[in-house]
Computed example of a mutant assay.
Amino acid sequence: MSWQARIDRALDERRAASALRSRRVVEQGAGRYLFQDGKRFCNFSSNDYLGLSHHPEVIRAWQTGADRFGVGSGGSGHVSGYTTAHHALEAELADWLGYPRALLFISGFAANQAVIAALTGKYDRIVADKLSHASLLEAASHSPAQLRRFAHNDAAHLRTLLASPLNGQQLVVTEGVFSMDGDSAPLVEIARATREASGWLLVDDAHGIGVTGPGGRGSCHAQGIAPELLIVTFGKGVGVSGAAVLCSEAVADYLLQFARHLIYSTLMPPAQAMALSASLKVINSGEGEQRREKLAALIGRFRRGAGTRVTASQSAIQPLIVGDNDRALRLAEWLRQAGCWVTAIRPPTVPPGTARLRITLTAAHEEQDVDRLLEVLDDAGE
Rank of each mutant, 00 (worst) to 15 (best):
R6C: 02
A10T: 07
A19N: 06
R23F: 13
G31R: 09
Y33E: 10
L34Y: 10
S45C: 07
S46I: 02
N47K: 15
N47W: 14
H54P: 01
P56S: 13
Q63T: 03
G65I: 04
G70E: 11
S73C: 04
H78F: 07
T84W: 00
E90R: 00
E92K: 09
A94M: 02
A94I: 01
W96L: 08
W96R: 06
W96Q: 04
L97C: 12
P100N: 15
L104I: 00
S107Y: 05
A110E: 08
I116G: 03
A117K: 04
A117I: 00
G121D: 13
D124K: 01
V127I: 15
L131H: 10
L136K: 14
L136H: 04
E138G: 04
E138R: 14
E138D: 09
A140P: 03
R148Y: 08
R148M: 06
R149M: 14
R159W: 10
T160P: 02
S164N: 01
L166V: 07
G168T: 09
E175A: 15
G176S: 12
M180Y: 10
D183F: 05
I190D: 12
R192T: 08
R192H: 13
A193L: 04
A197F: 12
G199L: 08
D204F: 14
G208R: 09
I209R: 02
V211H: 05
T212S: 15
G213N: 03
G215V: 03
G215W: 15
R217A: 00
G218L: 05
C220S: 10
P227C: 02
E228Y: 01
L230H: 11
S241D: 08
G242C: 10
A243N: 01
A244M: 03
L246E: 06
D253T: 09
Y254C: 03
L255T: 04
F258Q: 14
A259K: 02
M268V: 07
A271V: 06
S277I: 04
L280T: 02
N284E: 14
Q290L: 15
R292S: 02
R292A: 06
K294P: 00
A296R: 15
A297V: 03
L298T: 08
I299E: 13
I299P: 05
G300T: 12
R303V: 05
R309G: 03
T311W: 09
A312K: 13
G323N: 01
G323R: 01
D324Y: 05
D326N: 01
D326F: 03
A328G: 08
A332E: 10
L335Q: 08
L335K: 07
A338D: 15
A344M: 04
R346D: 01
P348K: 06
G353P: 07
R356S: 14
R358V: 06
T360A: 14
L361Q: 09
H365L: 14
Q368K: 13
V370E: 06
